[in-house]
Design a protein around this nucleic acid. Structure first.
Lengths: 152, 152
DNA sequence: ACTAGTGTTATAGTTAACTATAACAGTGTA
DNA sequence: TACACTGTTATAGTTAACTATAACACTAGT
């Protein structure tokens, strides 16, 4: 979670993508609160408005609901919605370009698997662990986030 | 070649990537001229300065040489240079993210191969043909580019 | 009521990307 | 020389992304 920003895409979109990844990985489940705008802004040393913009994207996509004074919460059905939408989006918009690049560079499946494995072992431990242990306490990603129960 | 721009990355970088792809695919060979700044600008209805910026990146990477009054030409060794650099860059910077996304979405090799095949048949015919027929006339990508011989 | 935590809005400034328009500079050919 | 191509630079304006600073609005706990 401490990796910095990639200059090939706006921060607010990378932020949106991170939350999406956490939902897909099961780190954030339905009803869970997102780490607060101010917390994220402070932790990543980014402007609160930038965080808000990323979160607003999620609201627009019906993935997240905002409750003033309480926080932002994962909607019911968010993960299913994502599994449909993101698959199609990825296959249509990103994978063709990536696939062409792989072919152009003559990369072998071995090289690709090696590179993927290398990264996973060094970066994704936390996310993998959280995803694999299903019913464990699902603390959100912020440092010490609020964790109040939404009153339905 | 008539596909429009992707708003997820600046045009000048997409332009740079297209030329890189053409070099890797063998569409542009050492000594070949790039389509002229003005031609590309007109064909894609983009500002000449934007095209120039993309081309300048290639000059900075030693892939292309600029000759005032003549045009811009692929350097010798450009393809080898690319095969080394781009492989490393792709495996380190892009593939890990893509690989994680694939895993998250639970995409199968079949789905990925299908999507890749679908796209290739509809988009890349021209590039593939040019790459496969090796010694054919290698006309550059512009509409009717200059095609002068550089005097070494 | 007070306080500390939420999301939200307002104001204003910087930078990068892109644009339009125009001119300058070098090369080859008729 | 004149012309038609090349790359290059100058000037200036728009938009999107990001920033800093501050205030407003709402909720829960004490």
């Amino acid at each position: 979670m401490d990796r910095e920003w990639n200059d090939s895409q706006p921060i607010y979109r990378q932020l949106r993508d991170r939350v999406v990844a956490m939902i897909l990985d099961g780190v954030l489940k339905e009803g869970d609160p997102l780490p607060s705008v101010r917390n994220v802004a402070a932790e990543y040393r980014v402007n609160p408005l930038t965080v808000l913009k990323g979160y607003q994207q999620l609201v627009d996509e019906q993935l997240v609901e905002s409750r003033r004074g309480l926080g932002m919460f994962i909607n019911t059905g968010a993960r299913d919605l994502l599994l449909r939408g993101e698959r199609q989006k990825f296959l249509a918009e990103e994978w063709p370009r990536v696939s062409a690049t792989i072919q152009r560079l003559g990369l072998t499946p071995e090289e690709l698997l090696d590179a993927a494995a290398t990264r996973r072992s060094s970066l994704d431990e936390a996310a993998s662990d959280a995803a694999e242990s299903d019913a464990a306490e699902s603390n959100a990603a912020g440092s010490e986030a609020a964790k109040k129960e939404p009153k339905s």
